[in-house]
């Protein structure tokens, strides 16, 4: 089918876009529930139950976006999948162990005998922390072109911390939206305390990417691109300000504006993601492999795309249904 021109051009691009959207959705959705896990040690035992209740019906579907993203990388860009994942062997293993621990701790903490609950709470925190740090580390290594030098490791260690703080910040924003009274007030404090992670993280990645790669430097800092792209950093700065101001108005008696911090945090994530996507396009493995070189056979991509066109709107629809059913402030989770 040559409806849109050469399928070896538009199919890889479409799949790169789909994969990008999945990663973005994953980072926002699992970002907030990982963040809630990272914030666990700051909460009382009763608050921990509410925190888990606020993410309980969603976390499973949130993690499925990671499976979709990695699945798209696997099916659409098989060569890149192998190169990237073998280069990130250890952080991937740490992330997976973290995901295992936190995923099962959700269930065990309420089903195991009561004396064991503290242990599972701790494992839930530890798993969330391991996952967030590992993802931040992978982001850092990817930005540095997947090289194994000492500088790369140091930079990746820094992004690991920043991403974890950024996750806990969006997690706190989610809690502001879903909780009330003392816990909500605490969440406001946590969110304020987490903004620096977001700013420094954004700053570090924005500075490092053009410095590491002359190609990316040229993409950003030559005329006329520099003017066309200027709205991106400016908007990000505006979002940070708006986020800060919305937090200062919370908590309040009518709960007015409790949705605002989460909304601004999502917008910030989107802006940051667009910046990264622009920098790295058309490469899927930085400076080594473009999406066009790494793509699977067009006939295989086509058959997935046909399914995706029907299925992805349905996924969107019933995900929205789930968020609607469990809308409002979090209540105790019960099977009856």
């Amino acid at each position: 089918m040559n409806l849109f021109g050469d399928p070896t051009v538009w199919l890889p691009f479409t799949f790169a876009a789909l994969m990008g959207v999945s990663i973005l959705v994953y980072v926002v959705l699992d970002g907030f529930d990982l963040g809630v896990g990272v914030l666990f040690p700051f909460a009382t035992d009763a608050e921990k139950d509410i925190m888990v209740a606020s993410i309980g019906p969603f976390w499973d579907a949130n993690e499925t976006w990671l499976v979709l993203a990695i699945g798209l990388l696997l099916v659409a860009f098989p060569t890149a999948h192998g190169t990237i994942l073998t280069a990130l062997y250890l952080p991937v293993a740490i992330m997976l162990i973290g995901l295992i621990l936190r995923g099962v701790a959700f269930e065990f903490r309420v089903k195991a005998p009561t004396p064991h609950k503290a242990t599972w709470n701790w494992l839930f925190f530890a798993g969330s922390l391991m996952t967030s740090l590992a993802q931040g580390f992978m982001l850092g290594k990817y930005v540095m072109g997947l090289e194994g030098t000492l500088g790369t490791w140091a930079f990746a260690a820094i992004t690991a911390v920043f991403l974890t703080v950024a996750y806990s910040m969006i997690g706190a924003c989610w809690l502001i939206l879903k909780t009330e009274t003392e816990l909500q007030a605490k969440a406001v404090t946590w969110a304020k305390g987490g903004i620096w992670g977001l700013i420094l993280g954004l700053g570090a990645v924005s500075l490092a990417t053009p410095l590491v790669s002359p190609r990316i430097f040229d993409k950003w800092f030559s005329a006329p691109e520099i003017f066309l792209l200027a709205p991106l950093p400016i908007l990000s700065a505006v979002m940070v300000l708006l986020l800060w101001r919305s937090l200062q108005r919370l908590p309040n008696v009518t709960d007015k504006g409790s949705r605002a911090p989460f909304t601004y945090a999502i917008l910030l994530y989107i802006l940051a993601f667009c910046g990264l996507a622009y920098s790295f396009y058309p490469y899927v493995v930085p400076e080594q492999l473009t999406i066009y070189e790494a793509a699977s056979a067009p006939e295989s991509l086509m058959i997935i795309l046909v399914g995706a066109i029907f299925v992805i709107p349905m996924i969107g629809g019933y995900t929205a249904l789930a968020y609607w059913v469990f809308k409002g402030k979090a209540a105790e989770l019960r099977y009856d």
Partner: peptide, 16 residues
Amino acid sequence: MTAFFLEAVFLGIMLF
């Protein structure tokens, strides 16, 4: 696409 999202999303409604 056809299985994971279906089960993961409706699991929340089924359980809680």
